[in-house]
Simulated scan of single mutants.
Amino acid sequence: MSRRSSRSRRTDEPAFSAASPCPCGLPAPYGECCGRYHSGAAAAPTAELLMRSRYSAFVLLDTQYLLRTWHPATRPGHLELDPAMHWAGLEILQTIDGSPFHSSGLVTFRARYRHHGKRGALHERSTFERQDGAWVYVDGTFLD
């Protein structure tokens, strides 16, 4: 294969396994981190961990998890993710409340991405609530 063809060849994102590094940026492997939330084996105990698991779901194009963890009052009827969007990193900037002892929380984050070769960042303050004992995403405000 020539150098030019290997550079221009498009490949899909690598498959994730339980042993893969978790996309959310925490040091645990995916199966011990966000993977257990995605599979339904556990529920995220804090708003920040739900935020991280939702970011990982965007990376993995897991629309079912995103819809399942979205507040019913603000959840869209359908969610279609753009496979050309490649999420490249998550930075949690601030967390207000959102512990197992709170009923609501705010998480401010910056998520880096690449879309059709252009780099960018999504800066958002997200609102979370506990509903029936589980954290759900309510809405977000774009910043910057």
Rank of each mutant, 00 (worst) to 15 (best):
A42Q: 13
D82M: 06
L90M: 02
S104C: 08
Q94P: 00
P45Y: 07
A57P: 01
S104W: 12
E124Q: 10
P72H: 11
H78T: 12
A44G: 09
V59K: 02
L66E: 02
W87Q: 09
S39T: 14
H71N: 05
A42R: 12
L106K: 05
G120N: 00
P83A: 04
A88W: 01
F109C: 04
R125K: 11
S103E: 14
L61T: 10
I96T: 13
G40E: 06
Q64V: 14
H78Q: 14
R75L: 11
H123F: 08
H115G: 00
A44T: 07
M51P: 02
H116V: 03
E80Q: 14
T74F: 06
R68L: 11
R75K: 14
T69R: 04
A43W: 01
S39M: 06
H71P: 04
T46Y: 04
E48V: 11
P100N: 12
T74D: 03
I92R: 03
R68K: 13
R119N: 12
H123E: 13
H78D: 14
S39A: 14
D82A: 09
G40P: 06
R68F: 01
G117T: 07
S104T: 08
Y65L: 12
T95W: 01
L93D: 08
P45L: 05
A121Q: 07
W87G: 10
P76G: 09
A84C: 00
A111H: 09
R36H: 07
H71K: 00
Q94S: 13
L106E: 10
H115Q: 14
R52Y: 09
H102L: 00
A57V: 04
M85L: 15
H116Y: 06
Y55F: 14
A41Q: 13
E80T: 15
L49F: 07
H38V: 06
V59M: 00
T95L: 04
L93I: 15
A84W: 10
P83Q: 02
H115V: 05
S53H: 06
P72R: 10
T69E: 03
